[in-house]
Nucleic acid binder design. Sequence first.
DNA 1: CCATTAGTTCCAAAGTTTTAAAACTACTTA
DNA 2: TAAGTAGTTTTAAAACTTTGGAACTAATGG
Lengths: 98, 98
Amino acid sequence: MKDDFDKKAVRVFKALGDPNRYSILKLLIEKGELSCADFDGKTTLSKPAMSHHYRILENAALIDVRKEGLHYYMKANIETLEKFVPSFIETHPSKKNR
Amino acid sequence: MKDDFDKKAVRVFKALGDPNRYSILKLLIEKGELSCADFDGKTTLSKPAMSHHYRILENAALIDVRKEGLHYYMKANIETLEKFVPSFIETHPSKKNR
DNA sequence: CCATTAGTTCCAAAGTTTTAAAACTACTTA
DNA sequence: TAAGTAGTTTTAAAACTTTGGAACTAATGG
């Protein structure tokens, strides 16, 4: 577990081992880039709770976040997915982000 | 998250999102079938703690456990790995292409 | 039988994660 | 400049996970 690859892998798995974060990422893969507001109808969680989950996904390099005006736009990081959880892309195969 | 596949995936990721369990599985992939005693020198954890982690890996279908005499023999479940975390197999048995 | 071995199960403590309310910040628009 | 929007950060509580000691169970060997 000293290996950097392994540490990153554990962080990725931990991030995905929560149903809320799993669903967030799944939706991002399906829809492309979304803002926090786009998740409003799709969850019962409060904004702070969602914010917490975005942060964990970002720290695992599973999503990239970009601020533009009032909005934070998020999208799945395909590189990390391909490296650690390629099955995630294959099984949710509308990854037509460009 | 109604999907059975997704529920299993989350369970697999949660199981692997812990460094102890990640290391256990990694070792099982490298060495094949091992008994609990084979982990004795390789961890600082108590037997109850290890037992707890084996159970979580088993519940995620990441390992198969077989009792023979006094020993519980464990091995990685390749089917589950291929389905949910194929990268885990690819990167570990021969970690040449990192 | 009885002792030993290789574990598991039960329990409570310690540690971590998840959550929402409240307070805050940054940007936009009137 | 004031008001509103779209979030973040802080805080604290509740829920969950991890851990080891003690007690237990099941198989083996005298």
